[in-house]
Nucleic acid binder design. Structure first.
Length: 955
RNA sequence: GGGCGAUUAGCUCAGCGGUAGAGCACUUCAUUGACAUUGAAGGGGUCACAAGUUCGAUCCUUGUAUCGCCCA
């Protein structure tokens, strides 16, 4: 059959994919050899409503390379695909759509109706990313496609929750959590992005109770007094004045002498109606930094993580000031009543508990219902108006040179780290709420040990350090979300708030007793709680499924380093906590795919590269090859379309090597499984080169060095197979020796097949297409991966002869080009003192050298004729006689340049060998190698010096 | 502030205790022979800087500078 002139990726790739799918090529266990070991990869599940971006394309290319390679090797493979319900992200998208289409809002339609809308949207868009993965060529077992909200998965999640609850690994409590005021839900630490933002630090006076005064003294480093004054206040610096209303104390460092005399006294929060101002104690704690601000900090336990710790230590009440939208609270009793109770607490005359404090609203009437940022402005204004802002002098000069000094409020402009929700992009508010937590301290140990003892390997190695660093300092994991889309927490409460955790409502009811009214916790679980169970969940746990037995623990996990904590670490902890086994053996982490200049791809920058556009323009194979070539362990991923173009050209190159073979009849050679028997040096040689390449590819993939595999194949196919071997077959296939031609045809056919096989994991489409151009027992996707080795196939003689031949051709071409010998002319070659090896190599490959270097004859002479261009080739002094036409100056320059390089090298080699310490210390083989190298270079130098001397005689 | 990394050709990046590599870009030449998505030849590097270890350092160690990412 004749091949098309070009490979049309756009039309061929989808058809090839369909053919694989139709033949069941990707089904778990397909092409497995009997008794094969298993090889399993879990896809990092993309968001169900997502679209394929370059990160997915990169990540899935690497996974597919591993899968296809292992499948061809006959492993029992499973690539488990699926999608994630992605709680916040999906709920956000659906809510936005509701708004855009003028439908009732989430709150208006209620939970059940809203969830129906989410499912509708999932059905509508859920298949998209899967189809995009297919365009990339991903060989997942689609029959097993999973989704974190359907099939057995929800049962798995609920069962794990119940088990962990029963083991005491999950608890509920009122804690300060990161609260997203936009989505009105708690989020985990990892979902918060801290961004440096311009901010202000205000300085306010908290008056001492009852008009008390003290002497405030500041000293410099040497203990000299720099400031001494009587104060009736303590100065407080804050970036968040609106939270002053919830202050429970002012804290100073225990060693801070400036405030020692007033510790234990009360001071007044300078906000709110004057008659109800609260008094709070001045306490000591290790937290305040003496050198920061005034050294005294206000303690607002309910709205700051550091203050929360101080308040917990000091038993200081934490007054919650804000509602779920982060507006100042408008509920509760009038301010006057609340403030009176709070004062009693501060005075120590009122008992209090957590629930009582939580119910109190200490927001003064005029602030109630205000947005937090509005409230901030008002607080600052009110305090300043009252004269309680710390003032600083500012001197200005007027037109007449008159200096005036005025006092203005002391406000520092300084960058502050502001927390933002990674999805909502609004400022996160620390908020005191009831949430569910995983007690990570209890389950982190095995996850750390598994990596420390090598059961799980993380690549690159730096990933392990990052992993340790995070897990060693892990915080409790807040797993409840005040969302609707997700796995609802399986806990029911009775009227007294008693918890009944069970897998079903009936079970909870049974535990609570008949007739007890129960309400289910409305919250859902963090998406990562369920995706943390992806390995066992997709394999059917808690059922002892066949898949679980065969494929768990899985083999490799290939994922972005950005989800090392979110996902990888949590899968480790969860799998070990639930089934007491590691989820996977190797973790390959990669970075973010960036643009050609290393910039993050973003819509606003406009530098986003859509993988589907790339596939349309260049084909999936080109994109995949680019991905593989970029994937050095730990390397940066900069995607340049020029590079993709280059690999598209490589696809074409391979295709043309196919059309050459087709043209020469190599596709008429029937398919055979074994390595062909050969006698010709060029055929012996290419077999060895292929074996070496195969070994290099295996070695690269075994160590996840995809870039090495790609560059080895690129260089072999383009340079060795096409530029050399293919060219060398021309004289034989066109020649009169029928036996030689037949052998070469068969060898070319086999060699080209090997290229297709070795390239298939990286470039599945074009290779399968070329494979299909001949009658075959199996599709390429299921063809056996080679097991021959270099030891089997390398013929040392052929190897040496062909290497010499290639070097000879290159030396002649180089000399010709530099001597300006017209390309078409055949020229004679002469040699003095040709040795046996060179003679043998010449005899074997004379036709090739003559044809490709355009040589008409080789003559052995006693002395070089005058005006000969010398060649730096081993085995004799070769030269091209160019008497009369030689450019003497050019030839001198050429020789001098080569001699210069040689001299530098010789200097290094001799220096090393002359150093007695080198002889003593270096390994014998290095010394031998150096000596041999020196001899070779000296020989070359002698010949070239002779040549230079001769040419110098001419001019 | 803590952690992790990077610095190699004009650009994007590999690499390695003992000859400095690729792709792109650049220069010159080639055009009916599988392929112009091509072929041939070529130019281009104090491997950031400094000290140390070593017979030998671009590579290992320490420090400096610059840049990046993650966590506070």
């Amino acid at each position: 059959m004749a091949l098309e002139k070009k490979f049309d990726a756009t039309t061929r790739e989808p058809r090839l994919y369909q053919a694989w799918e139709a033949a069941g090529c990707f089904v778990a266990g397909a092409n497995a050899k009997p008794e094969a070991s298993s090889y399993c990869i879990m896809i990092p599940p993309p968001n169900v409503t997502g679209v394929l971006h370059m990160g997915h394309a990169f990540n899935n290319t690497l996974q597919d390379i591993m899968m296809r390679w292992k499948r061809m090797q006959g492993f029992d493979t499973l690539w488990q695909p699926g999608t994630d319900h992605a709680g916040i992200a999906t709920q956000m998208v659906v809510e936005r759509r509701l708004a855009e289409t003028q439908q009732p809002s989430r709150a208006e339609m209620g939970r059940d109706a809203f969830l129906e809308k989410v499912w509708e949207w999932k059905e509508e868009s859920g298949g998209q990313i899967i189809n995009q993965l297919k365009r990339l060529g991903a060989s997942c077992d689609w029959d097993r496609e999973a989704f974190t909200m359907s099939g057995n998965f929800p049962d798995t999640v609920i069962k794990v929750f119940v088990e962990m609850y029963n083991k005491g690994l999950i608890y509920r409590g009122k804690r300060l959590v990161n609260w997203d005021p936009h989505f009105e839900t708690a989020i985990s630490d990892l979902e918060v992005e801290n961004v440096e933002t311009p901010g202000h630090m205000w300085h306010f006076k908290y008056p001492l109770a009852g008009g008390a005064t003290y002497t405030y003294i500041e000293k410099d480093e040497d203990g000299n007094i720099t400031l001494e004054e009587t104060r009736d206040y303590i100065s407080i610096a804050t970036t968040r004045p609106e939270t002053m209303l919830g202050d429970g104390a002012v804290a100073v460092h225990p060693s801070d002498e400036r405030y020692a005399s007033i510790v234990g006294k009360l001071c007044e929060i300078p906000v709110g109606p004057k008659e109800f101002r609260r008094l709070i104690p001045i306490i000591t704690d290790e937290y305040p930094d003496k050198d920061f601000g005034s050294g005294a900090v206000k303690i607002t336990g309910a709205h700051d993580f550091n203050d929360y710790q101080v308040a917990k230590r000091g038993g200081i009440p934490m007054f919650n000031l804000m509602d779920t939208k982060a507006a100042m609270r408008a509920d509760g009793k009038p301010y006057a009543e609340e403030a009176a109770v709070a004062q009693a607490i501060a005075n120590g005359t009122q008992e209090f508990d957590e629930a009582m404090i939580a119910a109190m609203n200490l927001v003064p009437q005029e602030y109630r219902g205000m947005d937090r940022f509005e409230a901030r402005k008002k607080v600052v204004q009110d305090i300043t108006d009252e004269g309680l802002a710390v003032m600083m002098p500012v001197t200005t000069t007027d037109d007449e040179g008159e200096e005036t000094t005025t006092l203005i409020p002391y406000v520092e402009n300084k960058p502050i780290m502001q927390p933002y929700g990674d999805r909502s992009k609004v400022v996160i508010e620390p908020l005191l709420t009831d949430q569910w937590f995983v007690d990570t301290d209890q389950i982190v140990g095995p996850a750390l040990d598994a990596v420390r003892n090598g059961d799980v390997k993380i690549m690159p190695e730096s990933g392990e350090k990052v992993y340790y660093n995070w897990l060693d300092n892990i915080e409790p994991w807040c797993i409840s979300r005040q969302l609707w889309w997700g796995h609802q927490i399986p806990v029911w409460f009775d009227a007294d708030g008693n918890q009944f955790c069970a897998t079903t409502e009936a079970e909870a009811q049974a535990n609570a007793g008949e007739g007890v009214e129960l309400t289910r916790d409305p919250d859902v679980l963090d998406t990562w709680f369920s995706s943390g169970l992806w390995p066992i969940g997709t394999l059917g746990w808690p059922e002892e499924t066949d898949a679980l037995k065969r494929y768990f623990p899985t083999s490799d996990l290939i994922t972005g380093q950005d989800i090392l904590f979110f996902w990888v670490a949590r899968m480790m902890m969860m799998q070990l906590a639930v089934v007491d086994e590691i989820p996977f053996k190797n973790v390959y982490l990669h970075g973010l795919v960036r643009d050609a200049h290393g910039k993050k791809m973003s819509k606003s920058t406009g530098n986003v590269i859509d993988p589907l556009d790339i596939i349309d323009e260049y084909g999936a194979d080109a994109l995949r090859f680019t991905n593989a070539a970029m994937a050095s362990l730990g390397g940066a991923l900069k995607l340049d379309t020029k590079r993709i173009e280059g690999y598209r050209n490589f696809v074409t190159k391979l295709w043309n090597a196919g059309t050459y073979g087709d043209f020469k009849g190599t596709f008429d050679v029937p398919h055979a499984d074994g390595v062909p028997e050969t006698t010709l040096p060029l055929n012996n040689w290419i077999k060895g080169e292929i074996a070496k390449t195969g070994e290099a590819v295996d070695a690269a993939l075994e160590t996840y060095r995809f870039n090495d595999a790609a560059s080895t194949l690129y260089s072999f196919v383009w340079n060795t197979f096409c530029s050399q071997y293919l060219e060398f077959t021309k004289p034989v296939l066109d020649g009169d020796d029928a036996a030689a031609a037949a052998e070469t045809k068969a060898t070319y056919a086999w060699g080209f097949d090997q290229c297709l096989i070795l390239l298939h994991p990286i470039m599945p489409f074009v290779t399968e297409e070329l494979w299909g151009a001949k009658e075959r027992p199996k599709m390429l996707v299921h063809t056996d991966w080679p097991t021959y080795t270099a030891v089997d196939l390398v013929d040392a003689q052929a190897d040496a002869d062909l290497s010499w031949t290639v070097a000879m051709i290159e030396a002649i071409r180089s000399a010709r080009a530099q001597m300006n010998v017209p390309g078409g002319d055949f020229v004679p070659l002469v040699v003095v003192g040709m040795d046996a090896a060179a003679t043998s190599a010449w005899n074997q490959n004379e036709a090739l050298i003559k044809r490709f270097a355009r040589i008409e004859s080789l003559t052995v002479v006693d002395t070089m004729p005058k005006g000969t261009a010398a060649l730096a080739v081993s085995g004799g002094a070769f030269g091209i006689p160019l008497d009369g036409i030689i450019d003497v100056a050019a030839e001198k320059a050429r020789l001098e340049k080569t001699l210069g390089k040689l001299a530098k090298e010789l200097g290094g080699l001799r220096g090393r060998l002359n150093n007695p310490k080198f002889a003593d210390s270096a390994p014998a083989e290095v010394i031998e190698e150096t000596k041999a190298n020196l001899a070779l270079r000296e020989d070359e130098e002698t010949k070239l010096k002779d040549a230079l001397a001769r040419i110098s005689e001419l001019g």
